Every structure is written in C-alpha cells, then in structure tokens.
Amino acid sequence: MSRRSEAKKARRNKRRAAKNATWLPDEALEGLDERLDEVVAGLEEFDARLTERGWIFDVDFDDDVGVIWYWPPSAAEVEDPDEVTAATMVALIEAEGGEIAHVVLVGTDVDYQFGLDELFDYLDPIEGYRLGDPLPQFDTG
C-alpha cells in the first residue's frame, strides 16, 4: 500500500473513531432533547422572574462561564471593582449546571449560594442591601 493510501486510510479511521465516540442511540438523544427543553424552560422562567422585579441580564458577561443578572438600585462606586462587585448580582455557573444561584452583594466578595427557587425567598433582603449596610443574615438551615 502506498503512503498516500495509508494516510487516507488513517484519516478515515480517525473520522470513524471520532464519529463513534460521539454517537448516541436515538432513544438517548430523544431523552437529551427533552431534558434540554426542560432546562431551557426553567432558565427562561428564572430569567422572567428576576427581570420582572427589575434585575438586568448582563449580556456582556462571558456566557461560556455562566450568566449574570445585576440589581441596578444597588450600584455604587467601589474602591476596587476587580476585588468586589459594584452592584449586587446573581450568577448561574455553567459548570454547575445552573443549579445554584450565587449572590454577591454590592461592595463584597462574599458568595451566598441558594437553590434556584430558594433564592426568591430571600430576594427582599438581597434587593434591599446597600453598600455599607450590615450584611443580611439568611436562615437557610
């Protein structure tokens, strides 16, 4: 066999191996589609619940990491915006599957974590917090 034929065969085998590594049975693919639809619907509902209260979705955030909403009334000038947040924010991190709402209050670097539904039980004190206020206490136990 010539070198050219060997190279062609090696490329074909490599393509087949890659295809086989990512192939899923139709049943599994249908299940994934349904799960994806559920996740998207859940995120759309979460976004709607936040934005109807006045939270702003941050379109400039790196969506490979996750998604962020911020609370405009909390915005303040902070000494070091690289160290602390300039507005209260809620983040969902892709690596966690978007299952945990991370809340960082303006002027802090403290990461409060809530379940997605649980977050809405605590939004009043989160939204009421302003730079310099005592940190709210969350009874999550």
Rank of each mutant, 00 (worst) to 15 (best):
M1K: 11
P136H: 00
P72I: 05
F138E: 00
N13G: 07
Y122N: 06
D47K: 15
W71M: 05
T108N: 06
G42K: 10
P136E: 00
V103T: 13
W71T: 06
D139Q: 09
L36C: 08
L24C: 05
E118H: 05
D121K: 10
V106S: 02
G42A: 12
A17K: 14
V67F: 05
D109P: 02
A91D: 00
P136G: 00
V40K: 13
F138S: 01
P136L: 02
A48S: 14
A21P: 11
R53L: 15
I68M: 09
R130T: 12
L123E: 00
A95S: 15
H102C: 07
L135W: 02
G107D: 07
A95Q: 10
P81R: 08
T88F: 05
W55D: 02
S2M: 00
T51E: 09
I100P: 10
E27A: 14
L50C: 11
Y129A: 02
A86G: 08
V110A: 01
L32W: 11
G132T: 06
W69P: 09
T85Y: 09
N20V: 14
H102V: 13
G42Y: 02
R35F: 04
K9P: 04
D60R: 13
L36V: 13
D47Q: 13
R12E: 11
T88I: 05
G54Y: 03
L24A: 13
G97N: 09
E38L: 11
T85E: 14
E118F: 03
E38W: 03
L24I: 10
P73M: 07
R11W: 08
A76E: 12
A86F: 10
D47N: 15
K8D: 07
N20F: 04
T88D: 03
Y129D: 00
V78R: 11
L24H: 11
L50F: 05
L32R: 15
D80A: 09
P136D: 00
E27Y: 06
V39G: 00
A101P: 12
L43W: 05
N13T: 04
I56E: 10
R3S: 06
A10H: 10
E118C: 09
T88R: 10
V59N: 08
Q113W: 00
I56Y: 01
Y70L: 08
F57H: 15
R3E: 10
T88S: 15
Q137N: 01
V104S: 10
N20R: 14
E127W: 03
F46Q: 06
F57Y: 15
E127Q: 14
E27I: 03
R3W: 03
S74F: 07
V84C: 05
P134K: 09
M1H: 11
A17G: 03
L119N: 02
D58C: 07
V110Q: 09
L116N: 13
F120N: 05
M1Q: 03
D124A: 14
S74L: 08
E45W: 03
P73E: 02
G31R: 13
H102G: 02
E44V: 12
D62K: 12
A10K: 15
L36E: 12
F114I: 13
E44P: 00
A86I: 01
Y122R: 01
V110D: 07
V67P: 06
M89T: 11
L116M: 08
V65G: 00
K19D: 06
V106W: 06
V40M: 04
I100N: 06
Y112I: 05
P72S: 06
R130Y: 04
D33Y: 08
L32Q: 15
A7I: 15
